[in-house]
Design a binder for these strands. Structure first.
Length: 440
RNA sequence: CGGGGUGUAGCUCAGCCUGGUAGAGCACCGGCUUUGGGAGCCGGGGGUCGGAGGUUCGAAUCCUCUCGCCCCGACCA
């Protein structure tokens, strides 16, 4: 993509309304535009990142055996009356009426709908286990939206729902999501720590929230230092195998948010304890028959008896992750995208657009990079060098390929790694080879 | 939902207290000179001062109502 043909309205100054770093950087980098409180448009650069994140989430859900569906954003009030949540949910639910005065709502979540969907399509214990998920926009009319896409009213969420015949099955489904979540966040370059969360009347250890570490996180968290060294990506996962040992390993070590943490009772010695800030990016629940009973979602058991299915739900804040990744990965100059979610892999900077040699060299390598399947944003504008550098640092592409008259005279281009700031002068061919080699 | 703040050009903000018909920097357009970390000079375009009422000869400025947005707290992917 040529920058001169792109829509990338970057800002030099910080917008007044943005207080936290990810919000400021998303606005400055031309990723989003606020339309109302807690409601955003995604501009081309931001949308690319959102889609990258969504795709990683999707791939890991699919790998776990979950089936992707798509449910509507608008739901009928009747459905929610059956579960009793229409009255319980309160003002956070956006209620609307259609032209026939039928009561509708913009879905804040989909337990009711998917339970109905599942009920209508299955009859027997042979039809379970199943997991179905979708990635869809939700609306929760928060009293106080803030922090940009981290806490919006409209947000993109992956919500998965599991259906099992008994608790043992539900636990297996829960474990699959537990592991899938660890892998999902790790692929985005995030260190996610599962933490025991309030699980309501069910009790036990069947609700975990996944907190990623970021200095500017909303909640204070504490965990055993050893957790930070766990690597969930290096070994493949067989989702048909017993995942309990993996879950046990992660849950055996101490991890708690500040409302659960008690320094006096903490089992981890001070030198082994990490105190950090966290952002909740995922939450998994087991809730048994809470919805299957009122919605009559039953299957025939092996002996012909009617059994309400055991369910769980598993959410990932996809749009929130965009902000969360920035919170976890930025510096004073701007965003530092992990390569897995970067909107482009390479930013090609022509230091002197209009100069015949520079233009020719840039056009040449731009074409070759694209041919090699490397996603590149080519800044071909007639801007000052400083402006291009600053803009490229701001939008945070992992690699900057810098071509100017000084280097070209020596037959060299410059390759800069955004994360480290490390620069290498090398030939255009070598730069091309290095960037192509890393392409996925 | 309690508490606080704010709304003037695309962005950051001044002007308001003490009413006299709207400004700066950046951005944008044209020209010339520049060009390795947000260039310089010259010229130019752009604002119903959030909205509605009111007071006044006259309102961005004073009064009333209203809407939007932001921050702190209690809740959430």
């Amino acid at each position: 993509m040529r920058r001169s043909q792109y829509f990338l309205p970057t800002l030099k100054e910080n917008p007044a309304e943005a207080q936290i770093v990810s919000h400021r950087l998303m606005l400055r980098a031309g990723m989003i535009r606020q339309e109302s409180a807690g409601i955003y448009s995604w501009l081309p650069l931001g949308f690319r990142v959102l889609q990258r994140i969504e795709q990683i989430v999707r791939e890991e859900q699919d790998a776990s055996g979950a089936l992707e569906v798509l449910m509507p954003t608008i739901q009928s009030a009747d459905l929610w009356r059956k579960s009793g949540r229409y009255d319980d949910y309160g003002a956070e639910m956006l209620r609307i009426k259609d032209r026939h005065e039928r009561e509708m709502l913009y879905g804040p979540t989909n337990e009711e709908m998917i339970t109905e969907m599942f009920r209508a399509g299955v009859k027997s214990y042979r039809d379970v286990p199943r997991m179905m998920y979708h990635i869809q926009w939700k609306f929760r009319d928060e009293v106080r939206p803030r922090f940009g896409v981290m806490r919006g009213r409209e947000f993109l969420m992956k919500d998965n729902y599991s259906f099992d015949i008994d608790f043992a099955g539900a636990k297996r489904s829960y474990n699959k999501m537990f592991v899938a979540y660890l892998r999902t966040f790790a692929r985005m370059g995030l260190k996610a720590i599962p933490m025991e969360a309030e699980s309501g009347p069910i009790g036990g250890d069947m609700s975990h929230e996944f907190q990623i570490l970021a200095e500017t996180g909303e909640s204070q968290i504490f965990c055993d230092k050893e957790l930070l060294d766990f690597d969930v990506l290096s070994s493949g996962v067989d989702y048909d195998s017993d995942l309990q040992p993996v879950v046990d390993r992660w849950t055996s070590l101490y991890a708690a948010t500040d409302d659960k943490h008690d320094a006096a009772k903490c089992p981890v010695p001070a030198e082994q304890l990490v105190a950090a800030r966290g952002i909740e990016v995922g939450h998994i629940f087991y809730f048994g028959t809470k919805y299957s009973k009122p919605l009559d979602c039953v299957v025939s058991g092996a002996n012909g008896e009617q059994v309400p299915v055991e369910m769980g739900s598993y959410g990932i804040g996809v749009s929130r992750l965009t902000g969360a990744i920035i919170e976890a990965s930025h510096d004073d100059a701007g965003i530092i995208w992990p390569e897995s979610v970067a909107p482009f892999k390479v930013g090609l900077i022509n230091l002197r657009s209009g100069d015949a040699k520079c233009d020719a060299a840039c056009t040449d390598i731009y074409g070759k990079l694209r041919k090699a399947g490397v996603e590149v944003l080519y800044d071909d504008r007639e801007e000052s060098a400083g402006g291009k550098f600053a803009d490229m640092d701001l939008i945070g592409l992992p690699w900057q390929l810098i071509i100017g008259p000084r280097g070209l005279a020596a037959g060299k281009v410059e390759l800069k790694e955004r994360r480290t700031g490390k620069r290498d002068e090398l030939s255009a061919e070598d730069a091309l080879a290095r960037l192509s080699k890393r392409a996925a």
